[in-house]
Write a protein that binds this DNA or RNA. Sequence first.
DNA 1: CACCGCTTATGACAGTCGTCATAATAGGGC
DNA 2: GCCCTATTATGACGACTGTCATAAGCGGTG
Lengths: 198, 198
Amino acid sequence: MAVSERGPRERMVFSAAQLIRRNGVTATGMRDVAAHADAPRGSLRHYFPGGKEQLVNEAVAWAGRYAAKRVDRFLAELPEPSPGRLFAAMVRQWTDEFETAGFASGCPVVAATVDWADSTDSTRAAAAAAFAGWSRPVARALTGMGVPAERAEPLATLMISALEGAIVIARAERDVRALTTVARELAPLLDGAATRRA
Amino acid sequence: MAVSERGPRERMVFSAAQLIRRNGVTATGMRDVAAHADAPRGSLRHYFPGGKEQLVNEAVAWAGRYAAKRVDRFLAELPEPSPGRLFAAMVRQWTDEFETAGFASGCPVVAATVDWADSTDSTRAAAAAAFAGWSRPVARALTGMGVPAERAEPLATLMISALEGAIVIARAERDVRALTTVARELAPLLDGAATRRA
DNA sequence: CACCGCTTATGACAGTCGTCATAATAGGGC
DNA sequence: GCCCTATTATGACGACTGTCATAAGCGGTG
């Protein structure tokens, strides 16, 4: 999670995502976001005239783009790509974070869905878009590994579902066990769907 | 979700779970809980001297027991039990709810983990216990279907992870697609782990 | 210099939160 | 009748929340 040296606006979006994935949306105040971003409180209204709703939606969208980009990077870094290994890399990102930074933070998109989706429909739509934008590169990577086109999208959904669920369980248990388990158990199924790799 | 005619205390725990799974923990006020349970506000302190923390923890524990009991019921209702069919029944409970009651509510344990776990450790522990108490009957059911003992617990973790993740995605998308997808894609893997059924 | 936007500062608004102190009610045992 | 306990009622407390109105700073351009 590189802290970019961009302007205060981007820093606030980034900070909002960080605070949301740690404490949830409702528990994250706008004043907290400004403080976390070292941004002046007076700028909040200026950059986000749509209020908290806009800030949250942009944070969710940012998280979705981030996850999508990570998939492409994982794919590029795999010496011998396979669906199971891609999933293992996605899981490892989380086990690494949990083991080095603790279990305080989860996925911001999940947090937004769980505690804002019902009240604020635009945030629900942003979360849906984030999941879709994340699923797309995963499915594309699967087809590139020889997974038949009609199974790529379902398997991408399965991967993201299992990952997100395991993240929540791992946070509750303060143990990466659930994450390593789903990676191990799902690998044969995923690799079995790839006819042959390049 | 049978509304039991029990005393106000149990009604409040039940209502807390309902409100939490819809709006999250932080957004659920104690006054809301009392109102939703048709319980007098003055009873809150009396029955839950530990305050909101105690109420939330009991709601999470209640949800965990509920989920565990459902697993046993699903198992008893399956004409020809198999791991894949048990998972399909667990998924169907959610597709049914979403299609009849809308996508407003998710899993209370997830909600508590996502937006309370970091600040209140007793709630995190309650969520971990709920997941464990839910996973146990699933694993037991799997062994009863011929799944080797050493694979039963990992597969139960995979099932619950995929289910919880798909619930979140389904809520975001307002579509049960993710749920039906994980049920379909996971069935061969689950059934393949059962050597032979009785 | 004045002028002008883009930013930032500051304080107040009404509302809600969890918590608490206090007191009034009920209902059964005697 | 009285008393004791369990339950409920009520109002207030301080600390937040998101939002807003108003005005100040600030860096260029004319």
